[in-house]
Nucleic acid binder design. Sequence first.
DNA 1: GCATACATACAGACCGTTTGGTATCTTTCA
DNA 2: TGAAAGATACCAAACGGTCTGTATGTATGC
Lengths: 187, 187
Amino acid sequence: MENAYRRRKQPELVRRTLLDCAARLAMEQGLAAVTVQAVCEAAAVTKGAMFHHFASKQAMIDAVVAELLEKLDADIEAAMVTDPQPYGRFTRAYVTVTLDDLMLNQGSQWTALYISSLTEPSLRQVTAEWFAKFVRRHRATDDHPTLEIVRLAADGVWLAGLLRDDGGPMPDLPALRKRLVAMTLPD
Amino acid sequence: MENAYRRRKQPELVRRTLLDCAARLAMEQGLAAVTVQAVCEAAAVTKGAMFHHFASKQAMIDAVVAELLEKLDADIEAAMVTDPQPYGRFTRAYVTVTLDDLMLNQGSQWTALYISSLTEPSLRQVTAEWFAKFVRRHRATDDHPTLEIVRLAADGVWLAGLLRDDGGPMPDLPALRKRLVAMTLPD
DNA sequence: GCATACATACAGACCGTTTGGTATCTTTCA
DNA sequence: TGAAAGATACCAAACGGTCTGTATGTATGC
């Protein structure tokens, strides 16, 4: 994004870059590090540009979280369509998507941001609704107490992933995934 | 804490009040709301007083988190000494302390703060070490994969507790507690 | 009377946001 | 077809506010 002033205009790219930089900052240094200045500096644009694309800083952060939830949405949906077994289908998808993300990209790309969206009161409601939507939608196939425990455990893995880089204990993910998935299958 | 200037000096009380107010702010409005000004205002003392008791804002927050972890420590230890069954003793204590806290005080007193201590990079390491300490210490009795799943599920309940007030789905805690504890017992 | 426990006042940095201007892009219409 | 006109994209600078932290003053407690 060099020589930004006189270059060709590329609004879509700038917007994307801003969102990506904001997400990266939140993940690597916490939500507190997501200042307008820091994001713009990382994206190599000025604050004016940022405020052209987003009405406020909060609007930008909201957009980041919304994108994150949409991505999770899509991943879960994709995992579900290939699953022939109805019982526990959503729970299985939830587990696989969660653990696979942690296993694939070392840096646990979304974890910190996702958890951050829970601590910030302004973002809590969005995530709460997103989550409630799923539970409501799949009540018919995923209502068993054991399945709930599996989902809660998957959430717990998110947290463990946060501490991973700081010497926190990290479970054997492949084995854990296997075991959790097994728990979602009917006896 | 009225008439602060000419009242009797009570350093211990002031320190306590500051810590309590900082914790309350973090729990109710998120860690971002914990500014020196806001804490001092809530405690009805001046910044001078606060900086007399704590070397920096970060030192104060560290103290809050340290207290929280100490409290958890004590609660877990207390739950363990009354447990005759060695196998899974720590995991059982972890589950009961976690869920009982959420069940007892509606507002999930510590949840938000605890999660914040995971999100904020400056606090992560302390919590990671605290957690690793436990796992290390009780490896002999709590190393089974099922026990790990139970602990992860308990962590997941922390997260669910965060979303509770915003309409997020909340599990039936007494039933869940029963079921998780049952999973920690040898067959 | 000296250390401790505060209050007061202030400094300097950084925050999100606004403003005003200058590019580039797109549409319109002669 | 192309030039004028308007909309959009972006920069640069500055504003008011709030942030943490410091320096200094003043009371209390032993």
